[in-house]
Amino acid sequence: MFPKSLSVPVSTGQPEWIVAGRPRTWQSLARLAAWPKVVWSRRELLATSVRRELQARFRGTLLGFAWVLLQPLVQFAIYAFIFTELLGLKLGTGSGVPAGTMGVYMFTGTLVWSSFADAVQRSTGCILEHRTLVQKVRFDAQLLPLQVVLSSLVTFGAGLIAYLTYTGVTSAWQFPGVSLLLWGPLLLGLQLLLTLGLGLGLSALQVLFRDTAPIVGVLLTIWMFLTPVFWIPSDALLPGLEEWLPLVELNPVHHLLYAWRELLMSGQPELVFNGAFYESLRVLSLWAFGAFVTGSLIFFRVERHMADEV
């Protein structure tokens, strides 16, 4: 039988009324400010559900969690082989330019982009995916997109470790400097805010308009090619596109990529990096906070209809 609890706590005062209707602006702002509190108080839930999500992804596989690390390692090896050994692509001429540049450039690009795109795409559908929870259990639904974003950051982290291992063990590229330790966490935080903001807003929209997810899928594909994942935004390399290239500065993911690459590739070669690291951080921060605030407000506004619509 259940252990009898010692006693039912006797309430000393009246509990708060829960009032129907659209949340007032100040209520939404208060909830925005309460984000850190919610995350802290539900940290165990977040940890458990992130672990569960990863578990579910690799359940039944022989290697299990090892895949998290193995996937990027293999991917990096393939990139290095194709772009450096097979195609012999080099970025820039000069004697200081290492051989493996293109492979490293592509790998860091896809690592950051796929983490971002994966988080956005999956968080768009996360409320619908967990409809049974949303309908039947009372909990903070805002944690669902966060959980998705966090789990994609875990795979991203595994990719980083794979990269560090590879550059540490082989001579493919120089091992990143101490600046990664310094700026890495901040960059990770901005990446989290940006993807979470998008995830919150889009997951709320997806509940109302089911066409959101396929549209997001299409837009992400277009976005990927508009972002310098596989190409270098350099006038010298892309003659004829000079008048369009400045537009890339409007793309937050470009700044995210640029900052990560500067840290991971130690600012080499000069063809790729033009010393705009701090500028990129500044622009990225604006986008990240803007997306986070907007996404949260949209989410809080739609939230009360979610259980009825999923």
């Binding site: 039912v8 706590p9 309430s11 009246q14 509990p15 708060e16 009324w17 829960i18 009032v19 129907a20 209707g21 569960r52 579910a56 049974t132 929870l133 949303v134 309908q135 039947k136 259990v137 009372r138 009360r304 209809h305 259980a307 009825d308």
Partner: peptide, 28 residues
């Protein structure tokens, strides 16, 4: 139980609420 929102009025509960709204609530 707080899983869906009211359209009018207000309510309050005093104490921890557990609900079993359907069998297998949210089981994975």
């Amino acid at each position: 139980a707080g899983t869906t929102s009211a359209t009018t009025g207000r309510y309050r509960t005093s104490g921890r609420v557990a609900s079993l709204l359907e069998l297998g609530t949210g089981f994975h």
